[in-house]
Design a protein around this nucleic acid. Sequence first.
DNA 1: GTGAAAGCGCTAACAC
DNA 2: GTGTTAGCGCTTTCAC
Lengths: 335, 335
Amino acid sequence: MGVTVKDVARVAGVSTATVSRALRGFESVDPAVRAHVLDVAQRLDYVGSPAAAALTTGKAGSVGLITPFVDRLGFQRMLAGIESEMRGSDLDLLLHCTGDPSEPHPVPPHKRLARRVDGFIVLSISADSRDLEQILRLGMPVSMFGSRGADTSSVRVDDRAGASRAIDHLVDLGHRRLGIIYGREAVDAGVLEHEMHVGVRDAAERARISLDQNLIVAGDYTTSGGAIAMEQLLAGEDPPTAVFAFSDEMAYGAMRTMREHGLVPGRDIDLIGYDGHPMSDVLDLSTIELPFEEIGSTLARNLLDELQTPTGTHRVVTLPTRLAVRGSTTGASAP
Amino acid sequence: MGVTVKDVARVAGVSTATVSRALRGFESVDPAVRAHVLDVAQRLDYVGSPAAAALTTGKAGSVGLITPFVDRLGFQRMLAGIESEMRGSDLDLLLHCTGDPSEPHPVPPHKRLARRVDGFIVLSISADSRDLEQILRLGMPVSMFGSRGADTSSVRVDDRAGASRAIDHLVDLGHRRLGIIYGREAVDAGVLEHEMHVGVRDAAERARISLDQNLIVAGDYTTSGGAIAMEQLLAGEDPPTAVFAFSDEMAYGAMRTMREHGLVPGRDIDLIGYDGHPMSDVLDLSTIELPFEEIGSTLARNLLDELQTPTGTHRVVTLPTRLAVRGSTTGASAP
DNA sequence: GTGAAAGCGCTAACAC
DNA sequence: GTGTTAGCGCTTTCAC
């Protein structure tokens, strides 16, 4: 239905094989011939059919991005990183959301995807996920974030150190009674949630302070969840003087609750978040900043490299976090 | 390299044509045969090759999402809407960012994409964009947001009414001296920026108040741009008593500037944004809420419908906005 | 260095 | 209702 290699070959007066070779820049083609073919192709406005190429080569020419969610703040930044890294490569990006991990898919989607892509970038699906297993079973190159890679290249954040850093900061400001707003229960070791808890515990131990189990509440990683969690913390008879929320979004919710109670972060209760969203600057929220764009670009780079030179080795990169101190942690409320 | 129709056909004892028909649920296949084929395919773990199917049918089995940015707050919500609508359809989503419209691409990407997809969803590329023209020239189904559709299905927001609503709200609170933080200069009529300005002007005229050109400043749609814009407004000899920012992000920046000046939104100066990001609730920022998810799902639905039943008619949907009044607009600062 | 020919895996006519 | 056959547009041996 469009211009094909045949057309180009005919007009250029060469065989389709030569066209194919010339277009892909093979050394073996006579420079003069190549130039001619390129010229003709250009004039004819020739665009190759990826489907046909895929069929013959077995390479799909694209990579799949698997993510459980698409509307979380960090996602877009990772995506931006992935995107910018992939531009330039001639691979397309196929987006696939798995949605809520709890409800199963009628048709496991990865089978279908598998034939459409040459490799996967997988964003933080919990390690026990059936989805993840299925993807790994495919035996294709996988670059993943979040869960510690079973046998793939992976990018992770040193969440343990990051969580410790948050606690250290609060302790340094003089706090002894800390509230923790975590996301969800940790299922597996090695997973974000688990690492964060360990980081918190370690830091507390090092500081020789004990954590009151009543001050450790879940916030479901949402703003409203964070708001409710803060309510719980305030409702107790002995509220914390400082709070660490495992995500900025939950911290935002906590701020809202504080405001409703006439409390000011950094004056009445210190509050620190985790993620480092741009908004936190505006809200004057101290936080642990994660390098989302870099996570994304590293994920993409790892996969591209693996696709290009399929050595069996995998790359495991751990990226650091950074403490951003703002007005929400001043120590004013410390004993 | 995998199980093919031939394998299934051989094992099931039928022809490849029958397998193909059975797998796609054609009525013409004997129910018993179909069941058998399905069973065999299942047992053999057969997954069709999209490339081969695409080659024969001419249908790519996917749609392309074209967007100039990926890290803007509204994007992810539109994406979520698109995604949820597309799930269920067996079409894949191919993401493509055009990046900054100012720097041109060495290879126009849409030509390549065009052979990979059956249609496009295009997010707010300015109407004069060469990219947009090229996509339209392809003659493929296009569902677009932002620019008024030349000859495509499109989804737009009634930005004129939305902007008017914001001004009305401020006027209702008693304000007469209004500051405007817009994004960029409006190039074309029909485009968001233009509509917003018209909406503002109309509302001002209706209220019989005149807008001071010195109080109309650009914020570049970024938080920092909004902050700078607010600086400019405050620097004047006669600052506004209320400000309307054309995006929430710019309003956030404006809030930061205000805080730095010891000013409180809703007390010293009223402030209203535009977009309705979740964060605005936390920041207690009044705003005009846009239905991003619905925009996304409508975009997807329009395209899917057009792909399914290629009647030449296009659908143009205009979605309404909603005023969310919060603590940043109280009228306290009105004369 | 280049061409001829054989497919890649599937679907669409056309017979039966 | 089902099988046969001929491609879709490209790449890739294998000759030359």
